[in-house]
C-alpha cells in the first residue's frame, strides 16, 4: 500500500494546502484584486471597496444555502423567486414592527423550502423539477401579494428595520457583518456537526448514506428549508437596503447563486465543497461586476457572459480532474 505518504506537518497546514489546491478561484480573486487595484484608480478607494462587499453580501446569504444543497447533490432553483418574495414580505411586514418584518418572510420562505424538501426527500422527485415548480409558485405568490406587481411596499423612513440594510458598523454595512456571521455558523454546521457530515455523505453517495443509517430524509428536508429561509433573509436585507420590496428582484438570481457555489470549488455532482469557497466565488463575481463598471466603456452585459464562461471553465476543469483521477 502506498498509503503512507508524507503527511503535512500540522492539521492546519493540511487544510490550508487543501484549500489552496481546491481553490483556484481564490488565486484568481487575489490576482484580480491586485490587478484592479493598479489598473483602476478608483478601485482601491474605501467607498468602492465598501460598496463591493455590500453588493456581495446579499448574494452571499443566498449562496450559503445553495452550497449546502449542492453539496448534498441537489439543486434549488427556487431561491431567486423566494429571495424576491422575502423582500416583498419584509417590506410589507415592516409596517407591523421589526419582529414581523423579519419573521414573516423567514417563516413563509422557510415553509416553501420545507415543501421543496418534503417533495424531494419523500417522493424522490428530481430536485430541479420540484424547485422549478416552486420558483413559479413563489413568483406567483409574490405577484398575488403585490396586485400583480403593481404595488411596491415601502419601508417607512426611520423604521428600525432599515438599519438591517443601511446601517453601518465601523463604516461597513450591517449586511456584510450578518453575511460573515452566517458564513461562520455555516462553516461550523458543515464541518463540525453530524448534520454537516450527513450532507457530505448524501452528496457523495446517497446509497451508502442510507446503508450507513444516516438520517437521509430528515437531512434533505432540513437542507431545503435552510436554503429557503436564507433566500428569504437575503430578501429581507435587500428590502431594508432598498427601503422597499422590489417585485422584479431576483430573476436569474438562482443561476448567480449556483455559479458562485460552483466557481468556489463545490462539485455540482455533490459530495465535496466548502463554505469559504463560496465566499470566494461571491467576491469574485462581485469583483467582475465591479471591474466591468470601472472600465465604463464595457457593456455591463459582459458581466453575465464572463460569469457563464467562468462557470463553464470551472465545470470543465472539475470534470477533467475527476476523469484523470479515475484513470
Amino acid at each position: 500500500m502506498t498509503a503512507t505518504t508524507a503527511a503535512p506537518p500540522t492539521e492546519r497546514g493540511a487544510s490550508l494546502a487543501g484549500v489552496l489546491q481546491r481553490q483556484g478561484a481564490a488565486v484568481v480573486l487575489v490576482l484580480g484584486v491586485l490587478a484592479s487595484w493598479f489598473a483602476f484608480p478608483h478601485f482601491g478607494s474605501a467607498d468602492n471597496l465598501r460598496s463591493l462587499v455590500l453588493q456581495g453580501s446579499f448574494l452571499a446569504v443566498i449562496a450559503l444555502g445553495m452550497t449546502f444543497v449542492i453539496i448534498s447533490g441537489g439543486i434549488d432553483l427556487s431561491v431567486g423567486s423566494v429571495y424576491a418574495l422575502g423582500g416583498v414580505l419584509g417590506a410589507y411586514g415592516s409596517r407591523y414592527g421589526l419582529i414581523v418584518a423579519i419573521l414573516l418572510p423567514l417563516v413563509v420562505c422557510g415553509l416553501i423550502g420545507l415543501i421543496n424538501g418534503l417533495l424531494i426527500a419523500r417522493t424522490r422527485m428530481a430536485p430541479f423539477i420540484v424547485t422549478l415548480a416552486s420558483l413559479l409558485f413563489a413568483r406567483g405568490l409574490l405577484l398575488a401579494l403585490t396586485s400583480e406587481g403593481s404595488t411596491t411596499y415601502k419601508v417607512e423612513a426611520g423604521s428600525a428595520f432599515l438599519w438591517l440594510g443601511q446601517g453601518t458598523i465601523f463604516g461597513v454595512g450591517v449586511p456584510v457583518y450578518l453575511a460573515l456571521i452566517l458564513f461562520g455558523l455555516g462553516g461550523v454546521l458543515l464541518r463540525r456537526t453530524r448534520f454537516g457530515q450527513s450532507v457530505f455523505a448524501i452528496g457523495g453517495s446517497e446509497q451508502s448514506a442510507l446503508l450507513m443509517g444516516l438520517p437521509v430524509v430528515r437531512t434533505k428536508i432540513t437542507l431545503y428549508t435552510l436554503s429557503g429561509t436564507l433566500a428569504g433573509l437575503a430578501g429581507v436585507l435587500t428590502a431594508a437596503y432598498l427601503q422597499s420590496g422590489v417585485t422584479v428582484l431576483g430573476v436569474g438570481t438562482e443561476l448567480d447563486a449556483i455559479s458562485v457555489v460552483v466557481i468556489g470549488g463545490t462539485l455540482l455532482t455533490g459530495g465535496a465543497g466548502t463554505i469559504i469557497g463560496t465566499l470566494v466565488g461571491v467576491l469574485l463575481k462581485t469583483l467582475i461586476q465591479n471591474v466591468i463598471n470601472q472600465v465604463g466603456t464595457l457593456d455591463s452585459n459582459y458581466q453575465t457572459v464572463v460569469s457563464g464562461a467562468f462557470l463553464l471553465v470551472v465545470v470543465v476543469i472539475q470534470r477533467l480532474l475527476a476523469r484523470s483521477r479515475r484513470s
Binding site: 456537526t193 454537516g196 457530515q197 452528496g203 453517495s205 451508502s208 459530495g271 465535496a272
Partner: peptide
Amino acid sequence: LVPLMSVASNVFLGREPRTRTGLV
C-alpha cells in the same frame, strides 16, 4: 462508503465522537 469523504469520516459517519459543545 463515501469516496469523497475522509477515511476517518467514513469509519465514524453517523457516530462521530463529539466535544462537550456537541461539535464533531
